[in-house]
Computed example of a mutant assay.
Amino acid sequence: MTEQKKARQVNIRPVIESSFTECMEQLQEGYVFAVAATAGCTVEVTKRDIYGTDIRIIRPAAEVNGEEITVLAQLKNTTTVRPDPQKDFFSYQLKKREYFDKLAMPRRGPKAILIVMATTPVQADWTKGSHESLELQYCCYWRSLEGETAADGVKSPTVRIPTANVFDASALTEILDRLDREEELV
């Protein structure tokens, strides 16, 4: 284990160490579910990561005989990246080349996006509740990788995520509107 990795692990403060990673996934799913609900969409969790995506977000058709709009998403949550909104982007390294390749391949059907959540390593600080609201700390960012390439031999590609791409209900609505108009996701 590298010294850098050991230093990062020292900063992680889980409530229960054995479930920390699963709770990170659950936190991000909850975030995405809340955003989708606010945008009038439903979410289906993919039980097996066969297609390189974790969830399917579906917006129902506006008309009775209309077609729903769907976007697939690969979810990643990290405690090691702290995006700076003053900068145009932050870098995120995918652990497997396969994740990148699945997101980058051109798709005829539903398009796919990467959603990266930047989370504090202090699990007890993930949410704060009051009588008026439940506040979720930090946020998710999205990016379409369709058509992108990574150098041959790179096992863990690094992607740039624009800090302007905060994943919220407005962003999700715009993503689905673009897909409905058959426009590129940029």
Rank of each mutant, 00 (worst) to 15 (best):
T78M: 11
M24L: 15
F90Q: 03
Q9I: 10
P110W: 03
E148P: 05
T53V: 15
Q86S: 15
D125V: 07
F20H: 11
I12L: 10
E132M: 09
W126M: 06
N11K: 15
A61Y: 08
A61W: 01
K95N: 15
L172Q: 05
E67V: 07
L114H: 04
V116M: 09
A150E: 07
P121Y: 04
T70L: 07
V186Q: 12
K47D: 13
E29S: 08
E98F: 11
P121C: 03
E135C: 11
K95D: 15
V154S: 14
K76P: 00
V43L: 13
S144I: 01
I57R: 02
Q4H: 12
D125I: 06
K128L: 13
E22I: 06
D168Q: 05
F167L: 10
E174I: 01
E63T: 15
T70R: 07
A151H: 12
P110L: 01
A171W: 00
E183K: 13
C23R: 12
L134M: 12
I161W: 02
A39F: 01
W142T: 03
V71R: 00
E44D: 11
I175D: 02
Q74G: 00
D49K: 02
K102M: 07
E132A: 08
L176T: 05
A37I: 08
C140W: 00
L176Y: 00
Y138N: 13
K47F: 10
V116C: 03
I69K: 04
D54A: 03
M24N: 06
A34P: 04
L94N: 03
L75I: 03
C140P: 02
A164K: 15
V35W: 05
T127F: 12
Q28H: 09
T158F: 05
E67S: 13
K96M: 06
L75R: 01
M1N: 12
I115M: 03
E148I: 06
L27Q: 04
Y138R: 12
V43K: 02
R8P: 06
F90M: 01
I113W: 01
I69F: 03
K128P: 09
L145R: 03
A73Y: 01
K155D: 11
N77L: 09
Q86D: 15
D84N: 15
S133A: 15
N65C: 11
V154W: 10
I161N: 01
T38M: 08
P157F: 02
T119R: 06
M105E: 15
E67T: 14
G30R: 08
E135Y: 14
T38P: 03
D180Q: 13
V154R: 14
L103N: 00
